[in-house]
Design a protein around this nucleic acid. Sequence first.
DNA 1: CGCGAGCTTGACGTTGTTCAACTAGAGTGG
DNA 2: CCACTCTAGTTGAACAACGTCAAGCTCGCG
Lengths: 196, 196
Amino acid sequence: MKLKFKKNENIFKQGNIFTHIINICKGKVKICHENESGKKTILSIKKENSIIGSEFVYKSDICNYSIVAIEDCEIYLIEINSLKIILQNNNELSGFIQKLVVEKLEKITQFYINRTNKQVVGRIADVIIFLSEEIFKSQSFTLPLSRKELSEFAGCSQENIINTLSKFDKEGIIKTDGKKIEILNIDTLKRISKHG
Amino acid sequence: MKLKFKKNENIFKQGNIFTHIINICKGKVKICHENESGKKTILSIKKENSIIGSEFVYKSDICNYSIVAIEDCEIYLIEINSLKIILQNNNELSGFIQKLVVEKLEKITQFYINRTNKQVVGRIADVIIFLSEEIFKSQSFTLPLSRKELSEFAGCSQENIINTLSKFDKEGIIKTDGKKIEILNIDTLKRISKHG
DNA sequence: CGCGAGCTTGACGTTGTTCAACTAGAGTGG
DNA sequence: CCACTCTAGTTGAACAACGTCAAGCTCGCG
């Protein structure tokens, strides 16, 4: 089943049952969580050819994150119950899904350690590096996120994002122009990420 | 293969290859990570009858955490390569291991969200509740951790742990006496955890 | 042209870390 | 049995990091 979503549309809403694995064919999405007080956290950004929800092959439960399009998207839904039957006779595919879950576990663990040990400059550097290396595969890209969303991703205030980005700009580490970002000095950025 | 470890002994050292799943028969351990600058983070505490390293059934790679005894321990090692062969013909056990990985993923995700959104009081309340509910199953227990280790678990300074514990004590929320902690008012503690 | 959302800036207060000094208890050697 | 030392724990003061608030700006759109 193939579906289209416009930017900012909800693809999946936190608190519902996850019945279909999602394969993103086109566009980008954010994975986000909202707590009882309404505070939002962006857990990750996913791009074309990503699979979301692999862990729900192994548990049936409500999902505690939402999936929201941050660009126009095309997605493909794979029914989990059907998938489970296929997996019984397909060790290769089975191993593939298991690896996805384990990779997700490793990434979030690293995120947790970073959030614990780094201060805000380092985390913002991380976000820029993540977008450049994992999402856009380019030193230069146009943000699909607002400043507010960046702050929900880096775990800080919107003002801190703005100040830090403009500081990086002044220091010649990046070049910003509205939503456009170009990394000028990746080495310094990585050093900040490490020591931040 | 059954092994014994004394308190503070290293059971597994970060950076090595994980060849055996660990089953703790007796005692408690901390799962901890150390970054390049030497800063430590306690990722979790595990007690008797826990299984550690389930994710290494699905990936062969160096492990980025250490396992250290915080009490005298007895552990049982299960060779992963042998386990994999058993799993091929045992769907039930296979499902059990997969669920462990998924549970671990969910817990660390929740930890990540908490670390992002809560301030230190809330996180310290979380640590006390975690120890009480998941490790000791009692409102009253003797810490197997130093103040320094508590701070590595809650992600703050040692001084902050000390101040907050003594503040909780003054307010009648807990009773502290060195390493002994008794929870007097679990409701207030949970409220602090939620709003912190 | 005027409105509103997103962005930006600076002032200010709070939170939390760092540092330094001090205390208490445990182990050691004379 | 008393100094001595070592470690863990404690306290308070100074300082830095960060969030909040309030005001102003920019730009797209009706």
